[in-house]
Design a binder for these strands. Structure first.
Length: 480
RNA sequence: GGCACCAUGGCCGAGAGGUUAGGCUAAGGUCUGCAAAACCUUAUACAGUAGUUCGAAUCUACUUGGUGCCUCCA
């Protein structure tokens, strides 16, 4: 049997936020890749915007694996936070119960999108000692100060001796701009300074003892500690949402540069995914515009008019826009893509229907399409371009089905392989069969009901009642 | 205020300096007893101005309109 996979060149270009240009990806250690992505904070259900980020990095993980890289993918779990104690009413059982349920809900959601598990999912609370040790180091090097039992990172000093806070934002002047904004902690010397260790009052139950006080570590030190522990002080890829650039990622870099006495900025390539908006606004609890994946899938989301949308159609929808562009979620945009995606995902069914003879020829250049697909992925993970190419190939299959184009037995096999690699292995989609979309069923039922009404007008009640009985499982019909 | 991002037909949305996705809608066709479904064909376009180029939706500059981050955030 001939080898029908065309091997991809490992020439990948990544847009590095640190340098704001596309760069050739050269791993620090030849074939090994370390990738860290900021995971969820377990204080609420994850929304579709969170999913967008995790889905994107899952495709990256799958793609690197496909290219035979030895990749270690770490996604942390933030299971303690300054605001946690209040929201859990300071009760142990309430805290543990909520963390457990939010974590299982998080996993359930990622499972329906068919995401692979990362190599490790370390938790903040399992790394308290390491975090305390790192804070000690920063204190010893005098890049932090103690005030009222809490420890703060000193940005002024950091900027003086290491000096690149604001690098990701391309705004080193942010230090000066920040003085204008309001202070929300009187203990800080400067508003940009951030908490490394937060002292908690006696009423707070979830806390740890340290040299300085009883309290919890700050949010940023958790990520630096965990990434350093599992990937080393300098690794290949650090990912997250754009909204984490400041302060979170700036703080991670600052801490790491101090702890490791390096100006390496923690990771070689920084990748930031853009936001999912609704009505062109970012989702937030206060605006009450959160999109929960389960609501859409189960048809409980008002904006999608209660249509049940298949998770893989939703996944394809999230992937069809380049990760550095915002997506504005709307019913129209998703509804208009549905048919397109159903067509694409039904490709294996279509391929089964084509039976070319072993002797028949074709003039389709499969190698050209393989190259196009790899080229798309290698150009800063241009998944929309990949999907565009797959749709093009899908059109070829359509043409073959209708005898507009001819295809040879072996070429058909190669197309099947190509689709398997990109749709299933890399994009992580599952092929399912859809006979009719829910939307079409609704149209269909409405048409039937129209006929029934005509029957009732003509007093053909025997038949109109039969229709009502048949449809009772799908719609309840109430006549005036 | 600083930094970053976005602008594509009647609508929704991809797009790689030349070949101009795809879907919805519309018109015509194949198939069919009539329909439906499926498929084929066709239509309309790149916010504005200037520049680079033999050639720009794509690159550069400016203008206009919009969004995000700068407070916890994916």
């Amino acid at each position: 049997m001939k080898e029908i996979i065309y091997k991809a060149k490992k020439e990948i270009y990544i847009y590095n936020t640190l340098k704001r240009t596309k760069e050739l990806f050269i791993p620090i250690n030849k074939n090994k890749i370390g990738m860290y992505v900021c995971g969820p904070t377990l204080y609420k259900k994850i929304h579709l915007g969170n999913c967008r980020t995790f889905i994107f990095f899952d495709v990256l993980y799958r793609y690197f694996k496909h290219l035979n890289f030895n990749i270690k993918y770490i996604r942390n779990i933030t299971d303690i936070n300054y605001s946690f104690n209040n929201s859990f009413n300071n009760k142990y059982y309430s805290y543990f119960y909520k963390i457990k349920t939010y974590y299982s809900k998080f996993n359930k959601v990622l499972n329906i999108f068919n995401l692979l598990s990362p190599s490790l999912e370390p938790r903040t609370t399992s790394h308290i000692i390491e975090q305390i040790n790192n804070i000690k180091k920063i204190l010893k090097l005098k890049f932090a100060y103690k005030k009222n039992g809490s420890i703060y990172f000193n940005i002024e000093k950091y900027n003086k001796y290491i000096g690149n806070y604001g690098k990701i934002l391309n705004n080193i002047n942010i230090y000066n701009q920040f003085e204008k904004t309001n202070s929300f902690s009187k203990d800080k010397k400067n508003n940009l300074d951030f908490v490394l260790w937060k002292k908690l009052k006696n009423i707070n139950i979830i806390k740890w003892k340290s040299l300085w006080s009883t309290g919890i570590p700050g949010w940023h030190i958790g990520c630096t500690t965990i990434s350093n522990k599992y990937l080393g002080s300098y690794f290949d890829i650090h990912g997250g949402g754009v909204d984490l650039k400041l302060p979170h990622h700036e703080c991670e870099i600052a801490q790491s540069n101090v702890i490791n006495n390096k100006k390496k900025n923690l990771a070689k390539y920084w990748i930031h995914t853009n936001m999912l908006t609704i009505n062109n606004k970012k989702m937030s609890k206060s605006l009450n515009n959160l999109i929960l994946p389960y609501d859409i899938i189960k048809g409980k989301f008002k904006l999608t008019k209660n249509y049940k949308i298949n998770p893989f159609i939703l996944k394809l929808y999230l992937l069809q826009t380049h990760y550095r562009k915002p997506i504005n979620f709307s019913l129209k945009s998703i509804k208009n893509s549905i048919k397109n995606y159903i067509n694409l995902l039904n490709i294996f069914k279509k391929i089964k229907k084509i039976h070319p003879k072993k002797t028949s020829s074709s003039n389709i250049n499969i190698k050209y399409y393989f190259n196009l697909c790899y080229k798309s992925m290698n150009d800063d993970f241009n998944i929309p371009l990949l999907i565009y190419n797959l749709i093009k190939i899908n059109k070829i299959i359509d043409k073959c089905l209708n005898n507009v184009l001819k295809i040879s037995f072996y070429d058909l096999k190669k197309i099947k392989k190509l689709m398997k690699i990109f749709l299933i292995d890399i994009l992580g989609l599952k092929i399912f069969s859809i006979k009719l979309s829910k939307i079409k069923i609704k149209v269909l039922i409405n048409k039937i009901l129209k006929i029934r009404n005509e029957m009732r007008k003509k007093k053909l009640y025997l038949y109109s009642d039969k229709i009502r009985d048949i449809l009772k499982n799908y719609v309840s019909i109430k006549d005036k």
